[in-house]
């Protein structure tokens, strides 16, 4: 059992605007609700833990594999762009509920995803979203100051490339297919997977280039 480990993690992080300090009042409410739901047999502790494990199992590697496949297989890419849910199911990834829409970056157009209303994010492919994606600052500024936001991520696009900000407002979840880096011709799909970062699938950064393949960039 990993209770001790989890206990440490609960108290490990620093408090920021979108992160409550540990021991905050609302954590007692979580305990109260959970106890009541379990006692009333609405939920079980095992089901909650199983769900946590399942969520932990969804990480950006899933999305990276989808993108790498699209890079090497034009027919797959066409299917992904036409019907995202069906295409990721081909690779064994369930994407139930919302419609999955893949958008492809090109030399002339770069996409960047935000959800200004809440926090819509393709969790089954990318895992839980990073804190900044859910922050007031990103949600507010991504639509009005997209180039300034990208610059904060170290991404500078040429002026003649259209930056298309995708506001994930409704029942779709968006996955960006970043540009395949130059210098990767002939690479295997497996090797390409490592270049496809989470941030490149949100669209705040390009895919890793072979030169920075072994860098410390996340």
């Amino acid at each position: 059992m990993t209770t001790a480990h989890r206990h440490d993690r609960t108290h490990a992080h620093a408090a920021t605007a979108d992160h409550a300090p540990p021991g905050h009042e609302w954590e007692f409410l979580e305990i109260a609700l959970r106890e009541l739901l379990i006692e009333k047999r609405v939920l079980t502790a095992a089901a909650i833990q199983a769900r946590i494990d399942a969520v932990e199992g969804a990480t950006p590697i899933q999305g990276s594999r989808v993108v790498a496949r699209a890079w090497v297989d034009p027919a797959y890419k066409a299917r992904l762009l036409a019907d995202g849910n069906a295409a990721v199911a081909e690779l064994g990834y369930g994407f139930d509920g919302p419609k999955l829409v893949a958008l492809e970056n090109t030399p002339a157009r770069h996409h960047m995803v935000v959800c200004t209303l809440c926090s819509c994010y393709p969790k089954p492919l990318l895992g839980l979203s990073p804190a900044w994606y859910k922050s007031r600052e990103y949600r507010s500024r991504a639509v009005s100051e997209p180039r300034a936001v990208l610059a904060e991520f170290g991404t500078v696009l040429p002026e003649d490339v259209e930056l298309r900000v995708v506001d994930s407002t409704a029942d779709c979840r968006y996955l960006i297919i970043p540009l395949r880096p130059v210098g990767t011709e002939g690479w295997t799909e497996t090797r390409l997977v490592d270049l496809v970062t989470r941030d490149s699938m949100i669209g705040v950064a390009p895919a890793r280039t072979p030169q920075t393949d072994h860098g410390t960039d996340v």
């Binding site: 989890r6 206990h7 993690r9 609960t10 490990a12 992080h13 620093a14 920021t16 605007a17 979108d18 992160h19 540990p22 954590e27 979580e30 609700l33 959970r34 739901l37 939920l43 909650i48 833990q49 769900r51 946590i52 969520v55 932990e56 935000v114 200004t116 209303l117 839980l128 990073p130 804190a131 900044w132 922050s135 007031r136 600052e137 990103y138 949600r139 507010s140 500024r141 991504a142 639509v143 009005s144 936001v149 904060e152 991520f153 506001d167 996340v218």
Partner: peptide, 26 residues
Amino acid sequence: MGGAPAGPIDRSEPPVTLTEQRVDAM
């Protein structure tokens, strides 16, 4: 909040806590 004035983005990524995981799961 789309378009509202706001400051720089805090790009730090603190780990998800067990409490947060439980709320997400429930």
